[in-house]
């Protein structure tokens, strides 16, 4: 990449530059990361081949949808440090946006590529509407407000019969098709979902390593200092909220198209909690962590099926065990990992 300090003419620049690139080289660990990335991508791309049944491919699609949700919540909680307990509301808004625009419910059947941006935009607008009055609150207070928002959205969907068909939900959503190519089978849908996961991973990486991403980090670390350093924290928090909401909206779109059915049941407070568990388990603020956490929490109930009655008992126990033994998460982000190792060295 670029060589920092190129334009420095003064004396100390030489050693500075050398020390700097050296430090960067040590921190990079490129080969290992590349290998794990290739292995992971190959495994993900071949899932339909080595997973026997359609049922398990459907599980993989569900996993992809949760990964999208975790990545989005990671922006809000992991990057910016905003405790959003009503995150599932944006997921619901995205899903219902698709249901309204591509089903016999209103008789609308818009092309999927037209609905796609709307499913990001509408939740983002709701995010801004919710955030504008509430993001002045801190920590636990914000958590309570967002929790309330999540419940309000669910109750509205449940009770606005004429608009949303209430608890009965909206059925027979259009099969997702792009330019005539139908994503009807689970395998095809899986690849569509995988492409979106990949796009989101790239997007979130770029966000994290940008001017805005650093500013989010500063707010998470010390909001007062962030303000004093010239950050318009309110506007930045709104942008984190809206971006996270857009991610959730896309996940909602994928979910609705996959199930071909939406109902308020899918968007309970419990869902918000599960998504929270996923990013906490994986490691707050870490992209691979969010992916791993989602995979574990989607796959675990399937693996535990044989023990039927004890399934969720074991699930809960495992969560407790992991969090007590590995509080930083299964795959913590680089900085948090360094934080722990550096402490150990002293």
């Amino acid at each position: 990449m670029n060589v920092p300090g190129e334009s420095v003419v003064s004396d100390p620049a030489g050693p500075v530059r050398r020390a700097w690139s050296e430090a960067k080289g040590i921190a990079a660990l490129r080969p290992m990361r590349m290998t794990s990335l290739v292995v992971f991508a190959a495994a993900a791309a071949t899932v339909p081949l080595w997973v026997g049944s359609n049922y398990l491919i459907r599980v993989a699609v569900v996993a992809c949808i949760y990964i999208m949700l975790s990545l989005g919540l990671n922006i809000v909680v992991g990057f910016c440090g905003l405790l959003d307990l009503g995150y599932v509301a944006f997921y619901a808004i995205g899903a219902y946006t698709y249901a309204f625009l591509a089903s016999p419910h209103f008789g609308l059947h818009l092309p999927w590529l037209v609905i796609l941006p709307l499913c990001a935009l509408v939740p983002a607008i709701f995010g801004i509407l919710l955030g504008t009055p509430t993001l002045r609150l801190r920590g636990d207070y914000l958590a309570i407000v967002t929790l309330g928002f999540g419940e309000i959205v669910r109750l509205f969907i449940n009770n606005l019969d004429r608009l949303t068909n209430g608890p009965k939900g909206i059925a027979n959503l259009d099969t997702v098709s792009i330019a005539g190519f139908k994503f009807g089978s689970p395998t095809r849908y899986y690849y569509l979902a995988l492409v979106f996961v990949a796009l989101m991973v790239v997007a979130i990486r770029r966000l994290g390593d940008s001017r805005i991403g650093r500013a989010w980090g500063a707010i998470r670390e010390d909001e007062l200092a962030a303000k004093a350093m010239g950050l318009n924290t309110h506007s930045l928090k709104l942008r984190a909220f809206a971006t996270g909401a857009a991610f959730a909206g896309i996940a909602g779109l994928m979910f609705a198209g996959f199930q071909s059915f939406v109902s308020p049941e899918s968007f309970t407070f419990g869902e918000s909690v599960i998504i929270f568990c996923m990013i906490t388990l994986g490691g707050m603020g870490s992209i691979p962590g969010a992916i791993l956490g989602s995979l574990v929490l989607v796959i675990l109930p399937e693996v535990l099926r044989p023990v039927a009655d004890y399934r969720y008992l074991l699930y809960g126990l495992l969560l407790i065990l992991v969090m007590t033994m590995r509080p930083q998460g299964l795959w913590p982000n680089k900085q948090r990992r360094r934080e722990l190792t550096e402490r150990a060295e002293r």
């Binding site: 670390e221 200092a225 962030a226």
Partner: peptide
Amino acid sequence: IRLFPNMT
């Protein structure tokens, strides 16, 4: 001191 402690 009010730095952003977990950032470089």
